[in-house]
Amino acid sequence: MRERFFIDASADVAGAGQAMFAQLRAVQRVVGTGAGHTSAAFHEAYHPYLDQVWAYRVAVREELRDRTFSPASFRWGDWDGKDRCPICRDELTMGA
């Protein structure tokens, strides 16, 4: 899929897609160390990934000349979801 970005997509969409894949790899590395979905380590990688997923979606919508949106469109504070994450709101300790 990543190679398709470099062939078919505009520079903005390809860049957003590449950033999303890079952050997904960071999530995979953290999970590979044994971090569970409730650990601080997982959330430190997951929320930047979620932010990149939304950046990719916005880039695609802009390219398609569709109406773009922002976190405020959903009454959210930011794309990364930390403000909506019950685990992060409880301020996990490292390695939990």
Rank of each mutant, 00 (worst) to 15 (best):
M1I: 10
R2V: 08
E3N: 11
E3P: 04
E3K: 10
R4D: 14
R4E: 15
F5R: 02
F5E: 01
I7K: 07
I7D: 04
A9R: 00
A9M: 03
A9V: 02
S10P: 04
A11G: 06
D12W: 14
V13T: 10
V13R: 03
A14Y: 00
A14F: 00
G15R: 06
A16I: 00
G17H: 00
Q18T: 15
Q18K: 15
A19G: 04
F21L: 07
A22R: 07
Q23H: 14
Q23N: 12
L24R: 08
R25Y: 08
Q28E: 08
Q28N: 14
R29I: 00
R29N: 05
V30G: 05
V30A: 11
V31T: 13
T33M: 04
T33Y: 06
T33K: 06
G34M: 11
G36K: 13
H37W: 12
T38E: 09
T38R: 11
A40P: 01
A40N: 05
A40F: 07
A40M: 05
A40C: 10
A41F: 00
F42L: 01
H43E: 12
H43P: 05
E44Q: 14
A45H: 01
Y46M: 07
Y46H: 08
H47C: 03
H47S: 03
P48Q: 09
D51R: 09
D51W: 14
V53G: 03
V53I: 07
V53K: 07
W54A: 02
W54F: 10
W54G: 00
A55V: 10
A55K: 15
A55W: 14
Y56E: 04
R57N: 07
R57K: 10
R57W: 03
V58S: 12
A59R: 01
V60P: 08
R61H: 01
R61N: 00
E62W: 05
E62H: 08
E62A: 09
E62C: 07
E62L: 15
E63S: 12
E63K: 14
E63W: 12
L64Q: 13
R65S: 14
R65L: 12
R65Y: 11
R65I: 13
D66Y: 15
R67D: 14
R67H: 13
R67E: 09
T68N: 10
T68W: 12
T68Q: 15
T68S: 13
F69E: 07
S70Y: 15
S70I: 10
S70F: 12
S73Y: 07
F74H: 09
F74M: 15
W76F: 15
D78P: 05
D78F: 13
D78Y: 10
D80R: 02
D80P: 00
D80Y: 01
D80F: 00
G81R: 01
K82T: 04
K82C: 05
K82E: 07
D83G: 13
R84S: 07
C85P: 09
E91K: 03
L92W: 06
L92Y: 06
T93C: 04
M94V: 10
G95R: 01
G95A: 06
